[in-house]
Design a protein around this nucleic acid. Structure first.
Lengths: 270, 270
DNA sequence: GCCTACATGTCGACA
DNA sequence: TGTCGACGTGTAGGC
């Protein structure tokens, strides 16, 4: 990786440096004093202050204030990147995104530092464990975790136009069961989602008995109330248990090497 | 703002620099080669590659890959920040968040650049224009945009436990009208939200006629179908019109200076 | 390209 | 603190 560093460059120098960096699609970070104007789906104005501005090779732009996780302004990607000196000796960095049409402008009055990185190498795989799909798969292959005697018919079953039911099964008494899985506390929205699937199923299978089960580590009180109102059911999922099954089955089937990383420290979220 | 820049520091130097920066709550950016392990609400593993690591004074941590808007790993805030040299001469940066308990570890094999910023000054106001609240207020003060003869009774009316209806009004025939406002294309979720409010209202006012109107710039086909099914209505909102009214009224009432920024360039979304 | 649902979503407001 | 809803949500996946 090659790196260029410019400390306190005059704005005219910064302008040239940024232009070249943008055209050559470098990875740019800039500590500067700037104000920001954005207009697109919404519109925002941010007064002057010290910020970190990041411009990535793919045109992603991030403006970070000294605090917080979220960028105050950004562009997920941009097609046009410009740097120019304004009439009043302000360095204007302008980023335009085509669809939706969005414009972001940082008006920079002072540059503390610019770094230009060329040839950042990053081809590593990103592995996510315990996302909803994995929980769903564990439950599908161990339906007893939900209810004894449950027989899984299908995972990710399309429910007409309503979307996909996570698990579609038949219970010990032959009733159809639609199961919606959530990896976090289920709120009202999860209940509505399950309700939609059950309604769709009922419409397409008039008269046939069907149950709806919301499977999640927990549920909010209002959501539980709504669930009862709709005649649906809740099944608490023990994430620890699911985790241990998932990691065991991953160990048995997939890349055992990577997994050794996990579980070495920390005992997981409570 | 005071700035320290370290180019290609040995890991032992980087360790000391980071420790001091963390303890003194500096704003840190680091270009480095690292792998990342995260465990908390979920768990992830990221192999080695060149990344930008940001640590903010409040403990926010961001790890950015060369592409894309989203950080690949992060910590919205953290209570514990450590830097230490591992047995195998790897610089480990560990960030622990208390609630929920989440741990992020970057294992750094090489440091290209560290910058430590002290005293970043950023007290500027962030102004958002045309968020849902502003659209709602414009519609509330100009109900004719929704329907002639509409009389607004209340804005942000609490609907039992269901949440808040954006606008609560009475139409020209004396029927109650519940209006849900959306800033963007309304999907199924918006329809269900409105339905919930209308249902709640009906339960608390049995027999009284009530209408539900979804006011949005557009609506997805499935959502429109669902809306009809529920006996609710859709009213298309002309964002341009709302925008011009909002900016006119802002100009008349509030800070006219800031507003001069907006509208100078760009003609709005798409 | 539309639509749906997930996300370590984050964040703010309010009961 | 719990719960809810907005967000310029971003992002992946299906059709």
């Amino acid at each position: 990786m090659k790196l260029q560093v410019y400390t306190e460059p005059p704005l005219s120098v910064a302008e040239q440096v940024l232009r070249e960096a943008f055209s050559k699609k470098r990875f740019v970070t800039m500590l500067c004093r700037c104000s920001v104007v954005y207009e697109g789906r919404s519109a925002t104005i941010l007064g002057e202050g010290d910020r970190l501005v990041i411009v990535k090779p793919d045109g992603a732009v991030l403006v970070h204030r000294p605090r917080g996780y979220s960028p105050v302004n950004w562009q997920p990607d941009s097609q046009v990147l410009e740097a120019r000196l304004d009439e009043q000796d302000v360095l204007v960095v302008r980023s335009v995104r085509a669809k939706p049409r969005e414009v972001l402008e940082a008006r920079i009055s002072r540059v503390y530092l610019i770094t230009i990185a060329e040839g950042m190498e990053d081809h590593a795989e990103f592995q996510e464990l315990m996302d909803e799909a994995e929980i769903r798969d564990v439950l599908a292959s161990h339906p007893d975790l939900i209810e004894p005697g449950l027989r899984v018919v299908r995972v990710e079953k399309r429910m007409g136009r309503s979307g996909y039911a996570d698990i579609y099964a038949v219970d010990s008494e032959g009733r159809h069961v639609i199961i919606e899985v959530k990896r976090v506390t289920a709120g009202r929205e999860a209940v509505e989602q399950l309700k939609r699937y059950v309604d769709t199923w009922r419409r397409e299978n008039p008269g046939a008995p069907v149950r709806g089960i919301l499977a999640a580590p927990s549920i909010t009180e209002p959501a539980a109330r709504l669930l009862r109102e709709y005649g649906l059911e809740f099944k608490r999922i023990d994430l620890k248990q699911v985790r241990s099954i998932a990691s065991r089955e991953r160990r048995a089937s997939k890349q055992p090497s990577l997994l050794s990383f996990v579980g070495r420290r920390g005992e997981g979220a409570q």
